[in-house]
Amino acid sequence: MAEDKVILVGVDGSPESLGAVDWAVDRAAQDGSRVHVLCAYSLPSFTTASLDGGYAALDDSAIRAGAEAVVNEAVGRAQGRDVTVTSSLETGDPAGVLVDLSDAATMTVVGTRGGGGFADRLLGTVSSALPAHGRCPTVVVPRHTEGAAYTPVKRIVVGVDGSESAHKALQWAVSEAEVWGAELTAIAAVPMASGAGALAWLPAAVDREQVLADVRSGLDRTVSQALEGHSGVVVRRHALDGNAAELMAEFSTAVDLVVVGSRGRGGFTGLLLGSTSQGVLSHASCPVMVVPSRHKDDKRRSSRNIATPWGRA
């Protein structure tokens, strides 16, 4: 087992979070990572005001017992698999706890949203807050309703726009393709057509086919750099006219994992990414991995000694 590889999963008892556990366990089985299941809950000092104007002290025993049941159910789903699973309960804002611990995790996995019961109290907006602030890649798994399962991951698509954020997303996509033995497609989108977000400022005389050819050339160079040391991975490349978020959401109906950067700045980035990751998260039909600009390999992170529920990292 790779002791330094920990996939952190936030659970709340909702079907979405249990689906995240399933995905994380399948992913961990590919490279020997450990799965750490975590349920975090906030514990206020008082509840609602009583009729006489006083406040009733909150007994957290029932809340903790419920959280323990959530964790036990999640851990039980991994039984029978050749994967090491650890777990813990944490008090605090779930999004904040997961963001803090993401600094020591290899990957964080959550469900799309809470769905009642403990879900509303424990996860809440985690699936939107964590991708924006997490310090390792976050995989957001939508609730599975019909059709084939999300694993094994056989097809991956990644959005590339020339920014540093997108370059890191591409590197992770290449690594994931290698881990899963998956096909990888890199997409660079240029919104030249009419409509919101289009490059309306382009002169009519501009050869749009040449623009796409130039973008494709840049995509080829970026992909070639990312493939260094990964000779077994083949990457298809496409430069397309269209809105990046819409194109990635469309591709999500035909692939098993979409990979995007958390934000973009520089190059074509402001035009192509912008709110792409948020748009993809809102509309994707398959799991989405959001790769932050800073991640585990950054020097500022690797030098830290972080106390975690699974040991020190």
Results as ranks from 00 to 15, higher is better:
residue 4 D to C: 06
residue 10 G to E: 05
residue 14 S to E: 11
residue 17 S to L: 10
residue 21 V to C: 09
residue 27 R to A: 09
residue 28 A to N: 11
residue 28 A to S: 11
residue 33 S to K: 03
residue 34 R to T: 15
residue 34 R to P: 12
residue 38 L to Y: 02
residue 41 Y to D: 00
residue 44 P to N: 05
residue 46 F to W: 15
residue 46 F to D: 09
residue 47 T to L: 06
residue 47 T to W: 09
residue 49 A to L: 13
residue 53 G to W: 15
residue 61 S to A: 13
residue 67 A to E: 06
residue 67 A to R: 04
residue 68 E to Y: 07
residue 71 V to P: 14
residue 71 V to G: 09
residue 79 Q to C: 04
residue 79 Q to K: 12
residue 80 G to H: 13
residue 80 G to V: 11
residue 80 G to Q: 11
residue 83 V to T: 12
residue 85 V to D: 14
residue 88 S to D: 09
residue 91 T to M: 01
residue 99 V to S: 00
residue 101 L to A: 03
residue 102 S to C: 10
residue 105 A to S: 03
residue 107 M to W: 07
residue 114 G to W: 07
residue 118 F to H: 10
residue 118 F to M: 06
residue 119 A to P: 04
residue 127 S to Y: 09
residue 128 S to V: 07
residue 130 L to I: 00
residue 131 P to A: 04
residue 135 R to I: 02
residue 146 E to D: 12
residue 150 Y to V: 02
residue 151 T to S: 01
residue 155 R to K: 08
residue 161 D to I: 01
residue 164 E to S: 01
residue 166 A to R: 00
residue 166 A to D: 00
residue 169 A to G: 05
residue 169 A to I: 00
residue 171 Q to D: 03
residue 173 A to F: 06
residue 178 E to M: 06
residue 179 V to G: 05
residue 181 G to Y: 09
residue 182 A to S: 13
residue 187 I to V: 11
residue 189 A to C: 10
residue 193 A to Y: 15
residue 194 S to L: 13
residue 197 G to V: 14
residue 199 L to Q: 12
residue 199 L to G: 06
residue 200 A to P: 15
residue 201 W to Y: 15
residue 201 W to G: 10
residue 202 L to D: 12
residue 204 A to G: 14
residue 207 D to E: 12
residue 208 R to Y: 08
residue 209 E to K: 15
residue 211 V to A: 07
residue 212 L to F: 10
residue 215 V to S: 12
residue 219 L to G: 05
residue 223 V to A: 03
residue 226 A to D: 03
residue 226 A to Y: 06
residue 234 V to D: 08
residue 235 V to G: 02
residue 240 L to R: 12
residue 240 L to V: 14
residue 241 D to A: 12
residue 242 G to Y: 09
residue 244 A to I: 01
residue 245 A to P: 13
residue 246 E to W: 03
residue 247 L to M: 13
residue 256 D to R: 03
residue 259 V to P: 02
residue 260 V to Q: 09
residue 261 G to I: 02
residue 263 R to C: 02
residue 264 G to C: 01
residue 267 G to M: 00
residue 272 L to R: 00
residue 275 S to M: 05
residue 277 S to C: 08
residue 279 G to F: 06
residue 279 G to V: 02
residue 280 V to P: 06
residue 281 L to S: 09
residue 285 S to V: 05
residue 291 V to Y: 02
residue 293 S to D: 01
residue 296 K to Y: 11
residue 297 D to S: 04
residue 297 D to Y: 03
residue 298 D to H: 14
residue 301 R to Y: 01
residue 306 I to K: 05
residue 307 A to G: 11
residue 311 G to D: 14
residue 313 A to M: 04
